[in-house]
Design a protein around this nucleic acid. Structure first.
Lengths: 251, 251
DNA sequence: CGTTCCATTGAGATGTGTCAATTCAAGTGG
DNA sequence: CCACTTGAATTGACACATCTCAATGGAACG
């Protein structure tokens, strides 16, 4: 497992293709990320049958609400989704950011209710995979079953990485690690990992990393004066990967 | 999901029975905790076939090491197990405590290597469940497949609860929540949830909660002077559940 | 072209960490 | 069975990273 957090899925690049929301799984250029590599063509077809493809979600709208009954897991096709947990005393915790090809919503399986809300950070599209049908299909497709065990295990590993960051790393280290993670995930989709636009606000970042917006802002300024990154609102350019990695204590 | 963390599994009390390490799953008094309630007798028998029962582990010995190849998940029969993640730069993070009836080791599934080490906090016994055979069996027993999806999802939920605690709660709140969680888990096994012996050291607690031993010690003293709990080394008695719940911000 | 929300920056407060000393508990070997 | 050693836990004094509060600046949007 890489030591930047948030990379939930071993990534292999899929073939390029058009952006249409109705693209089938077999043709989707994200298939290398979200689908088990191991699946046969015929198996992909069976999976496709149960997937509701490309449901659009407007910015700041939810895919599902916390406490809502769990019925499906989701794959991001376009955009970016955050998951947020609200505690009984009203505190909110951002528990993850999900980029195209990544799967979210697996928290709800244990008690049939979602323990998070999923909210679009920008206009997005998600594929819905009804879980009961996925379970049935998994019984007859061992490689699919295995893939979902692996997906959930990746989520556990990612969460534990965040736990470690929150528990043991400084604000600067956490931010460096987050930037590296986001960069890696852009690269995985053949987009620039050097220059990119952050889909999330400072508030989302600070909440996720257990900091305040002010601290996030100050650290961005610091990293900028050190010429490690360049930030203009949500546009980020990484100027010095080596130093960033060193700060993230990842090397 | 309860709002104290660490409770990974919905608990139902099983019938009382003897303590022998060779007790079969069907007879084990923990079966209500670690087994799917839904399994039929005949199905339990098939699961039993693949389980290596009651392997003993001495205090501070490991069940598996981080980086070691993943081959099985484990259930605690006797004692207590902690899982620990070591980062590349040598920091250690305790990611969980596991009590009798609870399952651990699911982190390793995604890349076939464990991302944690599992270490016994006291002389313990664990049941080993080879994962490849569990996968096979799951394909033919839908309720078992579902149970393992749920188990992994519980682990995710527990990890996210810890994330929230680390990110949003004070040292005192984290400790109160931990005591409540431990208490609940003792109760689930028909042991006293009021007076119990902590299996873990101050160091383990502080590490898990993202604090220092000194802070843990000070907070214990504070909770003791406030007559909320009484502590004598590892012996704990909860004197005022109501206040403890209030502190944990769980109510 | 105001209104509103988001981001930045500063100054001061504080919870928790660090360092250090002491006590306590548990073994171990003489 | 008693020093002796060793590691764990407690307590105090002080430091510092990050938070809080407050003011300003900038971007987005109707």
């Amino acid at each position: 497992m890489s030591s930047t957090y948030g990379e939930r899925i071993p990534v292999t690049k899929g073939p390029q293709c058009r952006h249409s929301p109705s693209t089938s799984c077999g043709d989707c250029r994200l298939s290398g990320i979200c689908l088990p590599i191991a699946l046969q063509e015929e198996e992909v077809a069976r999976l496709e049958d149960i997937v509701n493809r490309g449901k659009p979600v407007q910015k700041s709208h939810t895919v599902y609400h916390q406490e809502q009954e769990f019925s499906a897991v989701y794959a991001v096709r376009v955009g970016c989704i955050k998951t947020v947990r609200t505690t009984q005393d009203g505190k909110e915790q951002v528990t993850g950011f999900y980029f195209p090809g990544e799967i979210f919503g697996m928290d709800g399986i244990s008690n049939n209710r979602h323990t998070n809300s999923a909210i679009a950070l920008e206009t997005s599209a998600v594929c819905e995979i009804p879980f009961d049908r996925l379970q049935e299909l998994s019984s007859t497709l061992p490689s699919l079953q295995k893939h979902f065990f692996q997906l959930m295990s990746s989520e556990i590993a990612a969460d534990q990485q965040l736990i470690t960051q929150l528990s043991k790393n400084s604000a600067e280290e956490r931010m460096a690690a987050l930037f590296l993670s986001v960069s890696t995930r852009f690269s995985a989709r053949n987009q620039s990992g050097v220059r990119f636009r952050l889909p999330m606000s400072r508030g989302d970042i600070s909440n996720y990393l257990g900091l305040t917006v002010e601290t996030v802002s100050r650290i961005l300024s610091r990293l900028q004066s050190a010429e490690i990154i360049s930030v203009d609102n949500k546009e980020v350019e990484i100027l010095d990967f080596e130093q960033l990695r060193q700060i993230a204590a990842v090397a």
